Amino acid sequence: MNEYLKQYIKLQKPFRVTQGNPDSVCALYAFKDELEQSEDKQAKEILVDVYDLLGFKKSAYDLLCQIGDRSDKKILKRLGTLKDYSEKWGNHYALPKPKTPEEKWKEKERWAQLGLPAFQYHPDPLDTGAFEESQEGVVCDCCGKTTHIFYTAPFFSVENIAYLCPACIASGEAARKYHGSFQDNYSLDDGVDNPEKLDELIHRTPGCSGWQQEYWRAHCNDYCAFLGYVGARELRAMGVLEEVLDDPMWDEEQKDMIQESVNGGHLQCYLFQCLHCGKHLVWMDFD
């Protein structure tokens, strides 16, 4: 047994036992990075396994095509299985590497360095896809200025608006000018009695895109921050799956559904976090 295989066996066991908790995922990613730097054939063979385990199906298939012995029936069978996954999903369902506090801080710094406003109820709107970047720039329909960051999530208004810049959203000018909102004020949790918080959420906060009607969670008498789109694997990798299941909103059947959810799949979960106590909550819907 070579050293690469020994290391893989050592790392994949806790990953499977914990169903992908943060430490086990980070350890596999570190091992993946190490293997990708090696030209050793044994390292590449184990890299196929690591890709496969983490959900990088296309990467696993492509690499096995390069190094696999097609005279080996087991290799041919695995190639067929990986090809099927690769053609259907590519690397779309790969388990993301949990972000370190330093990485999260750098993302916030980058947003600030771009001179963009902060949104307390949607702190990482570039990461969640609520905004996109354009090197050429586009013209904001609201202020008429060129912006290199433009809004892509839902905006509910009578007029069809192509582009909005972050500043016009944060100031409330976009919602005022077009009599619009970024969130339906009926599709959110009860329990927030401050009308100013509601105004900030629906008129000055970038929204998120749902399969069905978007819904916003609340906790501690305030609306939560939207963190992004997740499935059970991502929740386990972040170490918050048990936390989001501890929620009176969900019955046992619904909790089972959350535990079977796949990011980007037929059942989508949306992750929120309380601004005050830090509790994580989810919303879910179907395509």
Rank of each mutant, 00 (worst) to 15 (best):
E102V: 15
H92R: 15
Y270C: 11
H219R: 14
R70W: 03
W105Q: 12
G231K: 08
K58C: 05
V262L: 11
E252I: 02
V48P: 01
N194E: 14
K6G: 01
L64S: 03
W89A: 11
H280C: 12
M284E: 03
D69S: 06
D199N: 13
D69A: 04
H179K: 13
S157F: 00
L281T: 04
K6N: 11
K44E: 00
M257K: 12
E103C: 05
K83S: 12
M238L: 14
L126R: 09
F119A: 10
M238A: 14
E200T: 13
K97A: 07
I75A: 08
E132C: 12
K44S: 04
N21V: 07
V282I: 15
Y215H: 11
D251A: 05
E133A: 11
Q183F: 09
Q12K: 11
L198Y: 09
H122A: 08
P22M: 11
Q183M: 14
N185S: 08
T100S: 15
L64H: 05
G90P: 03
K88F: 06
A112Y: 09
A43F: 01
E214W: 07
K73F: 02
D247R: 02
E214H: 13
C274M: 10
N263K: 15
K10L: 03
D190V: 04
E200N: 08
T100K: 06
L188F: 01
L63Q: 08
R217I: 00
E234T: 06
Y270S: 10
A167P: 01
N21W: 05
E196T: 13
Q268V: 04
E103P: 01
V262R: 13
C165Y: 07
E39V: 04
S181F: 07
Y163I: 09
D246H: 10
G68L: 09
Y270D: 10
L267N: 11
A118I: 10
K145S: 10
A237T: 05
F286T: 14
G264P: 11
S181V: 10
D193I: 12
G210K: 01
E196G: 01
E260L: 14
C208L: 15
T146E: 08
E133K: 14
E34D: 05
Q42V: 01
W250A: 01
T152E: 14
Y223M: 07
F31N: 05
F31P: 01
Y163G: 00
V282D: 03
A27V: 03
L241W: 03
Y163R: 00
L28W: 08
D247V: 04
T128K: 07
C143L: 03
Q66E: 11
H148F: 03
C143N: 05
I258L: 12
Q213L: 13
R110P: 01
S134M: 04
L47G: 05
R78P: 06
W250V: 04
E36T: 03
G264K: 08
Q268A: 04
N263R: 13
Y93Q: 00
P166F: 08
I202Q: 10
A30L: 05
R204H: 05
S59A: 10
A175F: 06
P125G: 08
E200I: 15
D287N: 07
A27G: 05
L76R: 15
T81I: 12
C140G: 03
W105I: 08
N185F: 04
L188C: 14
K10R: 09
D69G: 02
T146Y: 00
E243Q: 15
W111L: 12
N263Y: 09
H219C: 15
P101Q: 01
H280I: 07
K108S: 08
G180M: 12
E136T: 14
